[in-house]
């Protein structure tokens, strides 16, 4: 198993955000993590990406324990993520952000332009073009990120994470704020990343058409625990999932 979480529990004061969660993602697999708001999906991603240390449980990546590692250290081990809410980053352009992303990864294809003091990075320019062209943003390289729409900013955040050339990519609602046509384009970009880099992907997403288009397997979370693990056909008819989502008895 590439990513393996066992009994992960995260509490915030009295709130149990993640409750003994078990979750596996195989090498090269794209898994969707879905569930109602407040189910603990973001909290779990935060824990795998080094923002929180859980009160109990274990998370391993390629057999090595990764709990307690900083996001910086995780980046060096090939783990990178996107954010559900992108921060406002004044004065940074689209290209700035993609370059920064690349400099925080391991530089699998090319390391030279990743130093603290280098200013040129042709690979980042190329990546910016290919990743953002599907959204019609290929010419936006030098545009300040502040001037883009929320959805496009999220796409740039995705480009930043992909630019790190990760082996494990954690995505938190990557297509929120995009039109459904753009969402489908981005879904193809995400699949393309897996094809090109053999990357393993865990993706939180609500839009079921995007999930079906992108993912090999679906895990459903509710109230901090896993209630379903299976294919997209099975999830439609699962009684527990229907109860949680539709309030059926």
């Amino acid at each position: 198993m590439a990513l393996e979480a066992r009994g992960v529990t995260i509490r915030f004061g009295g709130v149990v955000a993640v409750n003994g969660l078990d979750l596996d993602v195989r090498q090269g697999e794209i898994v969707a993590l879905i569930g109602p708001n407040g189910a603990g999906k973001t909290t779990f991603i935060n824990c795998v990406s080094g923002a929180y240390v859980p009160q109990s449980g274990r998370v391993t990546w390629k057999g090595g324990d990764i709990l307690g590692l900083t996001p910086n250290a995780l980046g060096q081990r090939g783990v990178s993520r996107t954010f559900q809410n992108v921060a406002s980053l004044h004065d940074l352009t689209v290209l700035d952000i993609v370059r920064l992303g690349r400099s925080l990864g391991r530089g699998r294809t090319e390391r030279r332009s990743l130093g603290l003091f280098t200013t040129r990075d042709p690979l980042a320019e190329e990546l910016t073009e290919t990743l953002l062209a599907p959204l019609g943003l290929a010419d936006a390289r030098h545009r300040p990120i502040q001037m883009l729409s929320y959805g496009h900013r999220k796409a740039v955040d995705l480009a930043r994470a992909i630019a790190a050339e990760p082996e494990l990519l954690l995505l938190d609602e990557p297509v929120a704020g995009l039109s459904s046509r753009e969402a489908h384009e981005l879904a193809d970009v995400i699949r393309g990343v897996r094809e090109r880099h053999g990357c393993t992907i865990l993706m939180v997403e609500h839009k079921m058409d995007v999930v079906n288009r992108t993912c090999d397997r679906i895990v459903v979370m509710a109230a901090g625990s896993r209630i379903f693990d299976g294919s997209s056909d099975e999830v439609q008819v699962d009684p527990e999932v229907r109860r949680v989502y539709l309030g059926e008895p």
């Binding site: 996001p71 910086n72 995780l74 980046g75 921060a87 980053l89 004044h90 920064l100 790190a164």
Partner: peptide
Amino acid sequence: LVVRENEIVARGMGI
């Protein structure tokens, strides 16, 4: 610039 805007985000990004 990222650290200036938000240290928590900067850390989360891997800076």
